[in-house]
Design a protein around this nucleic acid. Structure first.
Lengths: 214, 214
DNA sequence: TAGATTGTTAATCGATTAACAATC
DNA sequence: TAGATTGTTAATCGATTAACAATC
């Protein structure tokens, strides 16, 4: 962990939440230690890969013993940034926006949805679990007054880029994008796509009987 | 396209829906032809990769011309299996299940949600856009009487594996899994995960300032 | 101590990129 | 025809896997 930063490939990043889930499960059933071999058996990865992945962030294991489950889980929490609290806003209070606002489990991990925004007059003023739905016009002013870490875009795809531009101008550095479109942002802004229709199309592709996966 | 099947890597598969989206956009703004170079500029891929990807499925282009947008889009529809209709059922009529049932756009691509299932007596009997919520006990009988292509799991994670087992026993071959857990199924059943909490954790990781992405 | 398992280096494998002949 | 761009082969790059010395 040099001071100049840790370099991590996308492939490793995608596996990190999965490690966290498995470690959490192991801890819940009371397992105290786990070897990379045992973890590889459970997760369907190779032991080599698991050790390589963890070693991006430092050596958390002990020769002859393996990894302490609780300790490793704690490390993963730190690595993923789940030891912090995040203020979220959701742009678009339709089906997906409301579903996210209703989903309480994110709070357990430190992600708090503080406000929703929409242009629909029928929605504006409503609350979901005490979370207010504001007029989209109020977006910039809201952000100015309320420090916000992550903005979630659940608008129709046509609106997504314009919203992203406004978010970027307002200083938002993390965008979780549910709109089925790739949005362009400056280098210092992180976009994570949750393209669920892409996921569905992938499934329909994989159910083709003439397709063999490599 | 040999009769023994097409072999496609996961990396290629993940790009297919993205190609489809971009081709759809190009068609919508009236662009008739596109070269791999132009498409690479728009999509942020290399032209080489685009040509390689398409050539998994056959040569759709023409030297000196490029690709005909509408034709290529049609090919992608066929490749992704979006020229067919799919009957879907959703297990779990909570936030996410209801949001999916309310999301009409999937129907335009051939995905029809036909029924929801839940154990909550307050939900059973309700309808969402004319889609009935059934008692989960009725799952097997429903599938027996109604040919179903894809089952969507939006239950709490603890229930997901048991549900998957029942779906597999009932002959379901495609599962779209929103539960934050990896489910085990026989080889001939396809699971596509929509692990949105993993996606959020990835975002929180990427917003760490000491992290450099490779 | 002996056995187990890590951290890490080296080897392999697969995916991406480059190059170019074929051809529209 | 000349220019453009594909389809495809070869070169490169990066990720995964294997191997093993270090050590608990």
């Amino acid at each position: 962990m040099s001071k100049e930063g840790i370099y991590v490939s996308e492939a490793v990043i995608r596996r990190l939440p999965k490690y966290y889930r498995y470690l959490d499960d192991l801890e819940k059933v009371g397992i105290e230690r786990v070897s990379s071999k045992e973890l590889s058996r459970r997760m369907g990865l190779t032991a080599s890969q698991i050790r390589q992945d963890f070693n991006c962030f430092g050596g958390f294991g002990q020769q002859g013993y393996g990894y302490n489950v609780s300790e490793l889980k704690k490390e993963l929490i730190k690595i993923l940034g789940l030891d912090k609290r995040y203020n979220l806003i959701v742009i678009g209070a339709g089906n997906m926006g409301q579903a996210l606002a209703n989903y309480v489990a994110f709070e357990k991990e430190g992600f708090y949805i503080r406000a929703l925004f929409d242009i629909n007059p029928k929605l504006i003023g409503m609350t979901i679990r005490d979370i207010k739905i504001y007029d989209l016009d109020y977006l910039e002013e809201y952000i100015k007054m309320n420090p916000t870490d992550i903005a979630v875009i659940t608008t129709p795809r046509q609106e997504a880029q314009a919203i992203a531009d406004r978010l970027v101008t307002s200083g938002i550095k993390g965008i979780w994008n549910f709109a089925a479109v790739d949005i362009e942002v400056p280098q210092d802004v992180v976009v994570e796509n949750a393209h669920i229709s892409d996921s569905l199309f992938t499934l329909s592709f994989k159910t083709r009987e003439d397709i063999k996966l490599i």
